[in-house]
Amino acid sequence: MKKTLVKISIIFVCFSINLSAQERYAIISNKNLGHLSLSQIKAVFLKKVSYIGDTKMIPLNLNSRSKIRKSFEKNVLKMNLSRLKSYWIRQHYLGHRPPITMKSEESVKSFVKKIDGAIAYINVKNIDSEVHILYEWSD
């Protein structure tokens, strides 16, 4: 019985460690923007939508080497790098530009706070009370 309890405890601890190791990310805006569905968020980042209501939308990307950006493209946009490249080349022909790229989570967060319509993705642990969470996901 003792051995079984020890085994269960070890499994529980391992599982907890695994859970805590899983990174959580969020798409954020400032507090003036209302709720957006996941389809709307995708449409904004793929520049299919320029306005929500009367607010001009400004999606922001992190650097292409960013781990968060890779997770965002895989889990939210559900597109791999070559498909995204193909998508943005086609958009160039149609007159649309890819989102602006910023270097750090800090810079996107301060941009989002100041500019209505700006949306970006950052690690949940970097979120503060001045931003509004639109969507959360984990790796």
Binding site: S37, S39, Q40, K42, A43, K48, V49
Partner: peptide, 8 residues
């Protein structure tokens, strides 16, 4: 006219 709210 386009809508992206739920389905596109």
């Amino acid at each position: 006219f386009s809508s992206f709210k739920h389905e596109e």
